[in-house]
Design a protein around this nucleic acid. Structure first.
Lengths: 345, 345
DNA sequence: GTGCAGGGTGCAACCGGTTGCATCCCAAGT
DNA sequence: ACTTGGGATGCAACCGGTTGCACCCTGCAC
């Protein structure tokens, strides 16, 4: 049997309350008593029982992380790096991370999903949600229950929702500018799933950049993907069918960019000689594929840290400095993009 | 305020105990009462408070997962897929997953690591550990506290420790056999970190296969990596320096194989024309890199499921059918391996 | 009419902490 | 000598469930 507070109290012939306060560093207990308690706790290897203190304090010191188990994350290193950022920060604040998948949407709200379950049973103090959707019923679900949450990605809607995000629009503009500067005009775009808000911001950046360069927007250059490699592959095939003249493509994330490269190769196109490809995310992997991926780099790890920091502030009822954290993005030029064939240097 | 059992009891003018039993499906309460309680619970959207029931039942219904946040997993999709398998299975059994990193080793045992913390504070009913080490102090730590655990990877040592694993030795033998069948004799090996048990099993397979084919074992063909891409890159460089004649290399995991390919390319070698590369793990990504990776495929997702299943059996004090689950592996031949130059077909 | 079995329910303790409030003690103030 | 005050500690309730045991009631056997 692990040692309890009661044990410490009996040993020292003082009350449970004093032990509790001593361990919490309450200034009301004499420093002498406090020292004795802490000393004994260490000697007997005492550790508070999380369920007991959670029950009494109405705090679990656990934050929930809702990431898509399928189809996306199983193969997308993006999330793992994001988790790393959250984890490392949370550790320093004494929080643990509970995983869950977001499948509350299809099912009825009371459906037996991990997401609703960990919230209803009050397993977590707050949540980090990913992939906000245009109409995201999770928001109401959580607001109703007064559970703090932070989105990875600007969910749009009311501005009182907290989020962290990269500057999608500006990021994509940099990508398109880069392609234009290499002489490309017929630039395709592989978009994300239509229900996600990130999809629209990135599309917006794409259109804005085209407009700036006086390139007409053309539906036949757009295809929809799902943020997975196979999705990017299919989308690229689709684009090549409809618009064989494209010389460059922007993919809304790196996994789809990798898929696009494979599709192009399948069609006998050389990347970047015949087709330039630019991705988005900056996953570590992008540097290791062939050709190494030119991409818009997000500070993924720091996004994780920022999300955790923001959420923990909310949980602890401190007013966060900012409800929204927008990171600037950078363009990482590698091998998958090159000057358009037949263009002067 | 969320509705509690007390609320239900008052509403129905019965005692808390009866409500508790009714919800648990205890046959001692009349089926009529049971129905009324369950009905009302649904209507009022009642959900048990996990901390309260955890405290009373000495069960959290949470399993801990200990994966390396750094340096490895941040870029290795292997773990994400593994997590998926665990998660999907755990959901069906009503368990959640708490993440932690295994940094208990460097620090003193009482160090403030997530691993020791979630165990000491009794946050989890059991643990899934990865990357067993030759002498793994986590084993004693957990046995002392009587916490069930399952390893991903055979930890060696006493056979009463539960684990799931792929058949490393046989898997590597298949890889080497494949290379030999393509005419290679000068086959290098990039091993894993020296403190991990998997490293030895894979090396053993390598040596066994060489022996079978009458190829002498040569230290100059071995280099050590750390299961990351940069580690694989460095190891490959090292091997090429010491033994320029190698025509094939087996890397102990896919990330290192990708690193090896990049190193070879850096040295002006074409893969697979000048150097064949075979990896290990079968991460989804291996199919998407260029050249697509020949690899020993592990059923990663199923390893996760099996680990979760085994652990949950232990937690629920059911005797598992087997304490060890060994999965057969398969060789997936793709583009990174080819017949040795100057060898007859 | 008494005894007994057994189904259905409730009481109260318990899990292991936290916390509002009362209490005690002793030095200082008048 | 008698309050006053503040520092140190303890009591007991509480968080929201679970569970051993006692109890009540009805029906049936004797």
């Amino acid at each position: 049997m692990p040692v309890t507070m009661q044990d410490l109290a009996q040993w020292l012939k003082i009350s449970k309350s004093t032990v509790s306060r001593a361990l919490a560093g309450d200034p009301r207990v004499s420093s002498e008593t406090r020292a004795r308690v802490q000393q004994l706790a260490r000697e007997l290897n005492y550790h508070p029982h999380s369920a007991a203190s959670g029950l009494a304090r109405r705090r679990t010191n656990v934050i929930g992380l809702v990431i898509p188990f399928a189809p996306r994350s199983l193969s997308d290193p993006f999330f793992l790096e994001f988790v790393g950022g959250i984890g490392d920060y949370a550790i320093t604040k004494g929080f643990s991370i509970l995983l869950s998948s977001p499948r509350a949407s299809q099912d009825e709200p009371s459906g037996n999903t991990t997401f609703t379950r960990i919230v209803s049973s009050r397993r977590v103090d707050g949540l980090i949600l990913t992939e906000p959707r245009i109409t995201d019923e999770r928001v109401d679900f959580l607001k109703e229950r007064d559970i703090p949450f932070v989105f990875l990605g600007n969910p749009g809607r009311n501005s009182d929702i907290c989020w962290v995000d990269g500057d999608n629009k500006a990021g994509v503009e940099m990508a398109v500018d880069h392609l234009v500067s290499l002489g490309h005009r017929n630039i395709a775009c592989i978009a994300g799933p239509p229900d996600q808000t990130a999809t629209f911001r990135r599309l917006e950046g794409y259109r804005a950049a085209l407009r700036r360069h006086g390139i007409p927007y053309d539906e036949s250059r757009i295809a929809q993907g799902d943020f997975t490699e196979p999705g990017g592959y299919r989308a690229m095939m689709d684009i090549l069918d409809r618009n064989p003249g494209v010389t460059a493509v922007f993919a809304s994330n790196d996994m789809m960019a990798i898929g696009a490269i494979n599709a192009a190769r399948q069609r006998g196109l050389r990347v970047p000689h015949d087709l330039s490809v630019v991705g988005f995310d900056g996953i570590a992997l992008g540097a290791y594929v062939t050709p190494a991926l030119t991409t818009v780099t997000q500070p993924i790890y720091r996004l994780g840290q920022a999300a955790a920091e923001l959420l923990i502030k909310l949980v602890e009822r401190q007013a966060p400095a900012e409800r929204h954290v927008l990171f600037p993005l950078t363009l990482t030029v590698r091998e998958s993009s090159a000057r358009r064939q037949g263009t002067a240097g």
